[in-house]
Write a protein that binds this DNA or RNA. Sequence first.
DNA 1: ACAAAAGTGTTCGATCTACACCCATGT
DNA 2: ACATGGGTGTAGATCGAACACTTTTGT
Lengths: 282, 282
Amino acid sequence: MKIHAKNLFGKIYQIDFLNYFYPTMDTHKELEDFIVNGSKTYIPHISLDCAIFGYHDHQLKILISMLKGLDGFCLPGGYIKRTETLDEAAGRIVKERSAITGLYLQQYKTFGDPDRVKWSDLDTEKLMKLPGFKKLKNSWLMDQTISIGYYAITDFSLVKPQPDFMSVSCAWFDIEKMPDLLFDHNQMVSEALQTLRLQLYYYPIAGKLLPKKFTLTEIHAVYETLLNKRLDIRNFPKKLIFLGLINKLNEKRNIGPHRAPFLYTFNNRKYKKALELGIDLS
Amino acid sequence: MKIHAKNLFGKIYQIDFLNYFYPTMDTHKELEDFIVNGSKTYIPHISLDCAIFGYHDHQLKILISMLKGLDGFCLPGGYIKRTETLDEAAGRIVKERSAITGLYLQQYKTFGDPDRVKWSDLDTEKLMKLPGFKKLKNSWLMDQTISIGYYAITDFSLVKPQPDFMSVSCAWFDIEKMPDLLFDHNQMVSEALQTLRLQLYYYPIAGKLLPKKFTLTEIHAVYETLLNKRLDIRNFPKKLIFLGLINKLNEKRNIGPHRAPFLYTFNNRKYKKALELGIDLS
DNA sequence: ACAAAAGTGTTCGATCTACACCCATGT
DNA sequence: ACATGGGTGTAGATCGAACACTTTTGT
């Protein structure tokens, strides 16, 4: 079975999605059970969508899903279990949709405009013809939802996204070549990126993108790419060390026909600067 | 009919709540209809709670509700209509619970830990004996909820909170004398205040607390009180003018046996500094 | 020796902090 | 004239931005 979709540039995707199955829901029966009984396990009306940015070697990408029945792309998202915290739900959802684990996920905003989901984007009739989906209509999944936005960043070369039972695909896209997303997910990405950039000097976000011991050149590239602007190579280390984000080691790394660079580590006095800003409550 | 509650300091409150009625639900029938059919109008499982701070003359207060059936205090909150945006819902909820209008409400965080509502705080049995409440058990209101936190600030001397049909009372409390709140509302207040303080120099939040034309002394008192720290009287105006938050007028106000102070206005180039911080997206 | 990348210091202007006295007005 | 609160300026420290050359190493 094939499904078709166009991205912004008109390219047609044909992906055989029956090769993929959700790890714990690997039969249509289980999928149907999720549709019929899911609201016993999950809280209805609230979803959680994750803008996962991926960095590697001067490139910034974003993790985009294509869901079954939707001719278009969206952020990986899901529902919150009745027993878990929001942060736990975010971690689990990303793990399920993409098989990526260990992210430092941050809540940034909740989206709830009544027109955030254009139902025209959701071809219910088409979806209901797919195996396992026939009880979708009038199910708990079809009601209005409010969505909590989370973001994270990781090294995209280290993780290979694996789509789950709901997804046709789940893959990295260059941030400038990101296709138009369904629903209000374009806005979600834009606000997530804005938050990421504001928090970059105050939270140890970039730590996830680098080896334990890294060089100044490496972290410099990370910051330039994420902020999408040039940062003075001489001022940059001063600032990071002043903020207490990184520590210089007494080790060097031998690479290439040039001087061996010193190594640095991220400082896990994470919230240092952020806590300074947050003035003490009486 | 009387209800009792203790605050942190052990004082007992006795309030005759049958004097109060919700303006658009002024009969028990309507209340019962809300309990039985509310989920047609409102989205279940999601509430919205508002930390409304009140300032006047060096005092910082917070608006606290006491709800029927709950022996304790909480933030004014409510449910989101299916047709409104989150910001609209926040405005309507504050208006209904307290009759306060025209606030500049800001979303700051969503709270969803599974244990955020301690059901022991909610005396369902007691509540169901109240008029209008008898169908509460197993209603849509009794399921787990996630809550979106909003905050705002206003001049508490200008608005007299009016409790609605759900509330025994709704009143201003000195921030240092705020009683312990039910559920996770203590944490909500603490995080709201933190956010308010972080945003105070970047958003025209304080504009709501002052007359259109105000003196430096007045705005200085606002900032000192909200931040709970002393601010140098000579540096303070420089900073506000540098940030573009206020404009000096060519008018003075005649008060008291001393030099007449100049008047200032808030500058509605609101987000100026905030937008500077948010780096341009590609 | 040369190519390639690493590393480093100073100056200037802007901003923040601390600090104390004179001014205008009403009674 | 005096009591009350309003208003102002400067010096020093700190921070951020701009800017170019020397060092190390492998081939």
